[in-house]
Design a protein around this nucleic acid. Structure first.
Length: 428
RNA sequence: GUGGGUGUAGCUCAGUUGGCAGAGCAUCAGGUUGUGGCCCUGAGGGUCGUGGGUUCAAGCCCCAUCACUCACCCCA
């Protein structure tokens, strides 16, 4: 009692009633869309051997070294709370040899991911993603389909203040030539780079391109664009993507600055960006990873996927859509124990028929119960006390216009069911 | 991991040069024996984030710590 109350873990959060309605709506919208386009749900575990992420993301990246939730279990195995879904889905695809019958598979999954970082706006340590992946399709239409789905989903959720950014990152054939050109420029520009970029120069040269420091921006003004270094295959792939997006009427921006941090990305990279979230501009991101399945020990199968930041999306949707919590259909105000006893039975019978009937389980005055009904926004209140039980007729009060009618206690549940189903129809 | 801002009632926040802990909203009760919203009256609710220090005296000053928050690094 005198000990401090237990608080939730830093960077974690509760999603409370009032918010969950919105989360469910987003989930339903996404699932319906995915199913319509032939995606199947896959549910993968929340933990994997650390090695899976180390191999897919890269052994000596910051992510693996210090930004994952990694710990040893009692046997000493290194385990990691998944930081993303893609690696696990690849693992599962390979482990169950899903490529054997038909390498083309489309998946979606929704669930929590984890990162061990200092939280900030739109970035939690447990966060949620809506994820979709296509395996076994090398053709650019897979890329377009995913971007199209993102656009459609956002439209259906009335999220309009967003831009799709697309870029190509090349492939193992053409990317090295680009990196070389970039390194040459960086070496020359080194004196005018900020200290962060000097570090990035060798470790993650692509990142220098989107540094915000003015000096770096100037130095990088004449930086080579990877689009100019694409090989013929990558180039025609990319032009099919942009051409097809245009024909489908999906607005997009070719963004030469768009960079993905991980080596396993190839060719198309895309992001949905918004201005609504401070420093966190991306609500969704994805790209092609043609080499990943092979590098994890599977056959050489191309793949592409995206992840939507659920928390960020929910925040945006919440700011534009009023929350609509449906009040109970009926409130039963019961006075005295005999009345409560029958009222409770009525409420359960109504609940079975899909009619929500709230009531006060404790002992409260009629006034208090009316106040509560009013606060809940209930339209109809059924009043049942001693005199009603005696006369075998209860009172049904319309809260909006204050009119009251009497209803016979005999077959009251059926009468109420009829009353409320008529109402639903006239509203619908 | 680094830096800034903020921690006082369920919520939003006042709190003066250090001098008895406050308001609005919300909750509960009464005004009306069994009828809601508006109004009036009253009540409950706080180890002032936590620990230490200075002081006759700390919500206020000092140190530490934790949390929240924004940004950086990084971005899956």
């Amino acid at each position: 009692m005198s000990q401090p109350n237990i608080q939730l873990i830093r960077g974690f959060k509760d999603i409370l009633p009032g918010e969950t309605e919105l989360w469910q709506k987003i989930e339903r919208t996404a699932i319906a869309l995915f199913e319509d386009f032939g995606y199947r749900e896959i549910r993968i575990p929340i933990m994997e051997k650390t090695e899976l992420f180390a191999r897919s993301i890269g052994e000596d990246t910051d992510i693996v070294e210090k930004e994952m939730y990694t710990f040893a279990d009692r046997k000493g195995d290194q385990l990691t709370l998944r930081p993303e879904a893609t690696a696990s889905i690849c693992r599962s695809y390979i482990q169950h040899k899903m490529y054997a019958q038909d390498p083309v598979r489309k998946f979606y999954t929704i669930g929590p991911m984890f990162r061990r970082e200092r939280p900030q706006k739109g970035r939690y340590r447990q966060f949620y993603q809506i994820d979709a992946e296509i395996f076994g399709v090398a053709a650019p239409y897979a890329d377009v389909e995913l971007i199209f789905l993102l656009r459609t989903l956002f439209d259906r959720l009335n999220v309009t203040d967003t831009t799709a950014h697309v870029n190509s990152l090349g492939c193992p054939v053409c990317r090295p030539r680009f990196k070389e050109a970039l390194s040459t420029l960086l070496a020359d520009a080194a004196p005018s780079l900020c200290s962060d970029c000097l570090r990035r120069k060798d470790r993650n040269p692509l990142r220098v391109m989107d540094c915000k420091v003015p000096g770096c921006r100037e130095a990088m003004a004449g930086a080579p664009a990877i689009l100019d270094y694409l090989c013929d295959d990558c180039s025609s792939h990319f032009s099919t993507v942009t051409g097809s997006l245009t024909r489908l009427g999906v607005p997009f921006k070719v963004d030469k600055q768009l960079v993905r941090g991980l080596d396993y990305y190839t060719r198309t990279a895309f992001e949905i960006q918004t201005g609504a979230l401070g420093a966190q501009s991306a609500v969704a991101g994805g790209g092609r990873y043609d080499g990943l399945v092979g590098s994890l020990g599977g056959p050489e199968i191309p793949a592409i996927g995206f992840a939507i930041g659920f928390d960020r999306l929910a925040e945006i949707v919440a700011s534009t859509t009023p929350s609509a919590v449906r009040p109970p259909d009926l409130y039963i105000a019961a006075l005295g124990e005999p009345a409560k006893k029958v009222a409770f039975e009525w409420s359960t019978a109504l609940g079975l028929k899909g009619i929500g009937a709230a009531m006060e389980y404790g002992d409260k005055s009629l006034k208090a119960q009316m106040k509560q009904a009013n606060r809940m926004g209930v339209g109809q209140v059924l009043i049942v006390g001693e005199s009603e039980l005696e006369s075998k007729a209860v009172v049904l009060r319309n809260m909006a216009d204050k009119t009251q009618i009497e209803i016979s206690v005999n077959a009251i549940v059926d009468t109420l069911i009829e009353t409320f189903s008529k109402k639903e129809q006239s509203i619908g």
